[in-house]
Amino acid sequence: MAITLNINGQDHEIDVDPQMPLLWAIREKAGLTGTKFGCGIAQCGACTVIVDGNAVRSCNTPVATAVGKAIRTIEGVSANNDHPVQLAWQELTVPQCGYCQSGQIMSAVALLENSPSPSDNEIDKAMAGNICRCGTYPRIRAAIHRAAELTK
């Protein structure tokens, strides 16, 4: 089925099974590989993208449900790798292997857009769906606070 996805402000005409998860449409059809596959069951958050302002797990979101909505991926966070969250991530050297970090950053961006100065509890809640096997959680927590400062 031919559908149109609006990703990072750009329309992509793609021909897919409407049940295909949004993740694979973004990666294989739109060719944006920053969004990662981790578990396929919305348990790890590596596939997190922002749809109409909300962080969603694209690995189990049927592509048809995203038609007509504004989809943001890691590639759309900033043109020059300088969004406050990205700057904070670089300043505090958050990523290690880095594989989960697109999803972590998208969850953090969505959190800060909804709550500009989140408490530790809010951070825990918003980030609980994103697993990092390198254990960068302490740095992620600090970097979210730092990004909040940079945004002020």
């Binding site: 890691i74 590639e75 900033s78 991530w89 670089q90 958050v94 990523p95 594989y99």
Partner: peptide
């Protein structure tokens, strides 16, 4: 680090 904050780091996948 910078390549890992904007999705440009390339992994085998």
């Amino acid at each position: 680090v910078p390549a890992k904050t904007n999705g440009s780091a390339i992994y085998p996948i």
